[in-house]
């Protein structure tokens, strides 16, 4: 992906993050991501209906990379089956690990295809996504 296009995508998702703002709705499962290695403090929420990830929300304090990555991946997995959502997340991890991955599946998340070059920022690109993954896996365990 072209650097200018990537920059535009990331800026857009940082300025106006999608699925932003939490809901006070007990049907939503939430997870806070405050970690020891990072100053980001994001909370991610998922609403599941059957095997579908019906909705994703997030809010909190985060840098450009954590905010944009959480926004982009929340868009990608919303409305998908849980297994599909986990597959998208796995492809995203592969990209970050510099392995072969399915570009078409990741759409705007391809903006992070060079994130792996900045070792000290990789965790920023994973913080919200890992929370989504955890919430989905927990919901699978419940069944």
């Amino acid at each position: 992906m072209d650097a200018e296009l990537k920059r535009a995508i990331l800026l857009d998702h940082y300025d106006k993050p999608h699925n932003h703002g939490l809901y006070e709705d007990i049907r939503y499962k939430g997870l806070n991501t405050a970690s020891d290695s990072c100053i980001d403090d994001l909370t991610v929420q998922c609403l599941f209906e059957g095997d579908i990830v019906k909705d994703v929300r997030f809010d909190g304090v985060g840098c450009t990379i954590s905010t944009a990555s959480t926004s982009i991946i929340s868009d990608l997995i919303k409305g998908k089956k849980k297994e599909e959502a986990l597959h998208i997340i796995e492809e995203y991890y592969k990209m970050i690990r510099e392995e072969d991955y399915d570009e078409d599946l990741l759409e705007e998340a391809n903006a992070f295809d060079t994130l792996s070059k900045q070792a000290n920022r990789i965790k920023c690109g994973l913080i919200g996504v890992k929370a989504m993954e955890k919430l989905i896996r927990e919901s699978l365990d419940e069944h």
């Binding site: 650097a3 990537k6 920059r7 990331l10 800026l11 940082y14 450009t64 990379i65 992070f112 060079t114 994130l115 070059k117 900045q118 920022r121 690109g125």
Partner: peptide
């Protein structure tokens, strides 16, 4: 600028 900051990972 924010553009330069994002440029860190591009």
């Amino acid at each position: 600028t924010i553009e330069k900051c994002i440029g860190v990972i591009l």
